[in-house]
C-alpha cells in the first residue's frame, strides 16, 4: 500500500480534513477519482478537481500512547492536495 502523510496545515475556511489526521501518516486504501474541492465549492468559487483518496490510519499513529486499541484502524476520505507521498 502507498504511504502518505496528511499536510499539517491550518488554513481558515471550510476544510474537510479533520484536525486529528493532520500531520499523520497512513496508507492509501483506494482512490475514488476526481471531486470538486469543497474549500472552493463552499464559497461558490469555480472549484478545482482533486482526487479523493481513502486513507487508512492506525489508532497508534493517531493517538499514540492514548490509543484505546493500537491496531484498530480509521479510514478517512482526504482530497489529494492535502497528501504527500512518504
Amino acid at each position: 500500500m502507498i504511504k502518505v502523510r496528511v499536510h499539517d496545515r491550518w488554513p481558515p475556511g471550510h476544510i474537510r480534513t479533520p484536525a486529528y489526521i493532520r500531520g499523520k501518516v497512513g496508507c492509501v486504501e483506494r482512490n475514488l477519482g476526481p471531486f470538486n474541492n469543497p474549500e472552493q465549492n463552499a464559497y461558490r468559487l469555480d472549484p478545482d478537481q482533486h482526487d479523493l483518496v481513502r486513507v487508512r490510519f492506525t489508532m497508534d499513529e493517531l493517538w499514540g500512547t492514548d490509543a484505546e486499541h493500537p491496531t484498530d484502524t480509521i479510514e478517512v476520505e482526504v482530497y489529494s492536495h492535502w497528501l504527500e507521498k512518504v
Binding site: 474537510r16 479533520p18 475514488l32 479523493l52 484502524t73 480509521i74 479510514e75 478517512v76 476520505e77 482526504v78
Partner: peptide
C-alpha cells in the same frame, strides 16, 4: 473481541 479489528469510517467528504 480484542482479536477482531475495529475499523472506523469517518464520512468526511463525498462518500
Amino acid at each position: 473481541a480484542p482479536n477482531i479489528e475495529v475499523r472506523v469510517h469517518d464520512s468526511t467528504a463525498d462518500m
